[in-house]
Design a protein around this nucleic acid. Structure first.
Length: 563
DNA sequence: AGAATAGTAC
């Protein structure tokens, strides 16, 4: 910092050139002579320049230093070019970095510089530029050839993990083996991670197995692979075999349970984490978010409350993720008042905070309030995302706000650039159907550019049931039956409910029978409720709960009162 | 110069 104030003292900040390099009017590069360098009377020594570059200066200062390098004819000194590229990449200024890179003083940039530029593109995640550069590197003229090293492969493998398909990954893995780098710790770890991302656990394990040296990254990535692929038993096995676990390892196993809908185990695991003194870990943000989400899905208010208290007690920063998860937890556990309290305390709520508040209000049937929050969000110039719109449409659906919902659905693309996805169609069809606009709903389904899925048909069918539309219901049943052959779904329950509401008991038993034959344990619906901090689970025709007889008695009692 | 984790909807 002091060096820059010194620069200012020398009026360097007053330089206002125009071109990319020195801001003069010429754009030719790198011929220094063509640039009219301003402030030529100022001279900074080489040592000072390299010291300045070493500090990774912000863009404005960097341009001035670059201008100095050009005036002093240092632009073909590799050390300076390297530093400049490094600095430009640091601030993600690709245009300048590429210019320097592609006009590198002969013969060609050293591997370090290749790695730096590939690494920066790798960080962009959705860019394939790192591959283009890697390809260029492999095809260099033999006279100026530089060879990829373990760094290059670490970045390239990581880039492969960001791609949509494993194709590149497989090829790169081949090159890794060819270059004898498979057992390198970093390369190996990034390979495990890549296979974990693509849920190819066998290959992740093979890499893990072949590694001569492993660290907590290798183990955690492998656990992550199994968890991503739903193989929680294997994930646990590896997890407990780990020589040491850190907070991320715990986050991986806990998020694995959460991602696979095994919310009870999330809480069990959290408890275990608190007991695991040997790991010397405390739950990090990811763990807390997963645990809160598990509480939300279980309706476990008491545990949720406890986690909230833990966060407060330990002065853990209530980040956007945490507050979003808290709002969701309180809303789903029936405490919309607490959810509102959390939300109102956020100084500057972001999309995620708004979205969880909007959705929370929606499933409490508070459609008007939900729209109020949505409008507040628009007033504060916070743009909604796809999930926000789903929340708002659901709010309209549950409160019969057809006009408001329609206007949001039809304008989402023009107003916020959000193209309606199948989920949005699902919500909208549900909105129309519930409100009794069955014909209109069917019209929307027919006009859809995306192929309607089971959710859409189910929403329509559900509407037919509510409004007892036998004719439309029957025609939809045929579609549902066809789709059903593709995979299991809850639509059969709806189908049987529809037949039931039409009084067609013969058909009801037929559907139920077919369901009974195919159903496996995991398909059976399940309900939870938390009473005094204990979560009770109920399944269809449950006989396992210790107090099932009392529960059934109470149900009968209620049944009599209600009818 | 390097590798691992998280929320909101359906």
């Amino acid at each position: 910092m002091r060096l820059f104030s010194w620069l200012k003292a020398k009026h360097l900040t007053d330089i206002k050139p125009k071109c990319r390099i020195c801001y003069c009017s010429t754009t030719t590069f790198p011929a220094v002579s063509q640039h009219k360098i301003p402030s030529q009377n100022i001279h900074i020594t080489r040592k000072e320049l390299s010291k300045l570059l070493h500090q990774r200066p912000p863009k404005s200062q960097l341009k001035q230093i670059h201008a100095q390098i050009l005036t002093q004819a240092l632009s073909s000194t590799a050390a300076f070019v390297n530093s400049l590229i490094h600095c430009y990449l640091h601030i993600m200024e690709f245009t300048s970095a590429r210019l320097l890179f592609f006009h590198y003083p002969l013969p060609s940039p050293p591997i370090l510089i290749w790695n730096l530029i590939i690494r920066t593109y790798c960080k962009l995640q959705n860019s394939s530029e790192s591959f283009s550069l890697f390809r260029l590197l492999l095809n260099l003229d033999p006279l100026i050839r530089v060879h990829p090293d373990e760094y290059t492969f670490t970045f390239i493998v990581t880039s492969c993990a960001h791609q949509r398909s494993i194709v590149h990954g497989k090829i790169v893995h081949g090159l890794v083996v060819k270059n004898g780098l498979e057992s390198n710790l970093y390369v190996g770890n990034s390979l495990i991670n890549m296979y974990a991302v693509f849920k190819i656990t066998d290959d992740a394990y093979k890499v893990f197995d072949k590694m001569t040296e492993r660290d907590v990254f290798s183990w955690t990535s492998l656990v992550c692979g199994y968890a991503n692929n739903g193989e929680m038993d294997q994930a646990c096995e590896i997890f407990y075999k780990m020589p040491q676990r850190n907070d991320v390892s715990w986050a991986v196993i806990i998020s694995g349970f959460a991602g696979n809908g095994r919310y009870m185990e999330v809480l069990v695991c959290l408890n275990e984490m608190f007991c695991a003194v040997e790991d010397k870990v405390r739950p990090n943000e990811a763990v807390l978010v997963c645990a809160l989400s598990a509480c939300a899905n279980l309706g476990a208010l008491e545990q949720g409350n406890w986690i909230h208290a833990y966060i407060m007690r330990n002065d853990i920063l209530c980040s956007s993720n945490i507050s979003t998860a808290l709002i969701d937890m309180y809303a789903k556990c029936g405490r919309i008042d607490c959810a509102r309290l959390i939300f109102n305390r956020i100084p500057r709520p972001d999309v995620h905070n708004f979205t969880s508040m909007i959705s929370g209000l929606s499933y409490h049937g508070l459609g008007e309030d939900s729209l109020t929050v949505f409008n507040m969000m628009l007033d504060k110039k916070v743009n909604p995302n796809e999930v926000t719109i789903i929340g708002v449409l659901n709010a309209c659906s549950h409160s019969g706000l057809v006009e408001e919902g329609s206007s949001i659905f039809y304008n989402m693309e023009t107003l916020w650039g959000l193209k309606p996805q199948i989920e949005h169609y699902g919500c909208y069809v549900d909105l129309l159907g519930r409100a009794g606009y069955l014909e209109k709903a069917l019209e929307v389904v027919k006009s859809m550019q995306i192929k309607p899925d089971i959710v859409i048909w189910r929403a329509l069918l559900s509407a037919c049931r509510i409004h007892r539309n036998i004719f439309l219901g029957n025609s939809i049943i045929d579609f549902i039956k066809q789709l059903n052959s593709a995979g299991p779904s809850g639509s059969e329950v709806l189908l049987s409910n529809l037949y039931a509401s039409l009084g067609n008991w013969e058909k009801v038993s037929e559907v139920r029978k077919a369901m009974g034959q195919r159903k496996t344990q995991s398909d059976i619906g399940c309900s939870w409720i938390e009473v005094n901090g204990v979560v009770h689970e109920f399944r269809v025709a449950d006989k396992l709960h210790p107090q099932i007889l009392e529960v059934l008695d109470k149900l009968n009692e209620l049944w009599i009162v209600l009818s």
